[in-house]
């Protein structure tokens, strides 16, 4: 499991861990009941503090993305299809809030913002399945 944490990201490390694992759970990249690395193990792998990993796991547990088993560590929670969609919708809504506010702060009108989103969808983003970024 490679998280590719970045020191350049404006997001704190804990938030980066949460987002990356959430992404992998929601996309199905990590299968149901998959055992996550131990807290110390992931801390060593990613060179971050153990407390940061522990808190990231606790955040994910609260979101019901993962569940603990006594003495065994953390596992990927089963998430059904409609839940997945709902979760994704909620995440995207949350993720869009900041850039949308930023756009308004910079003086763009809502109409201009909508056009931006449509244009981006048409050009920049790759269709699922054609990402070619698997590694």
């Amino acid at each position: 499991m490679q998280l590719k944490l970045s020191d350049m990201s404006p997001l704190p490390l804990r938030e980066q861990i949460v987002r990356r694992i959430r992404e992998m759970v929601l996309s199905g990249e990590l299968p149901e009941h998959f055992q996550l690395p131990s807290i110390r193990g992931l801390a060593r792998e990613e060179r971050v503090g153990a407390v940061t990993v522990q808190r990231a796991y606790e955040d994910l547990e609260r979101e019901k993305m993962i569940y603990p088993r006594q003495g065994k560590g953390f596992f990927v929670a089963p998430i059904d299809r409609s839940d997945r969609k709902e979760q994704a919708t909620r995440r995207v809504t949350e993720a869009l809030r900041d850039p949308l506010n930023e756009a308004r702060l910079m003086g763009l009108t809502d109409r201009e913002i909508l056009k931006l989103v449509r244009d981006s969808l048409a050009s920049d983003l790759e269709e699922p399945g054609s990402t070619g970024k698997e590694d």
Binding site: P10, L11, P12, E15, D98, N101, E102, R104, L105
Partner: peptide
């Protein structure tokens, strides 16, 4: 206030 945007500090 409107368009509140919060971000973390390094």
């Amino acid at each position: 206030a409107e368009s509140i945007r919060a971000s973390a500090l390094t």
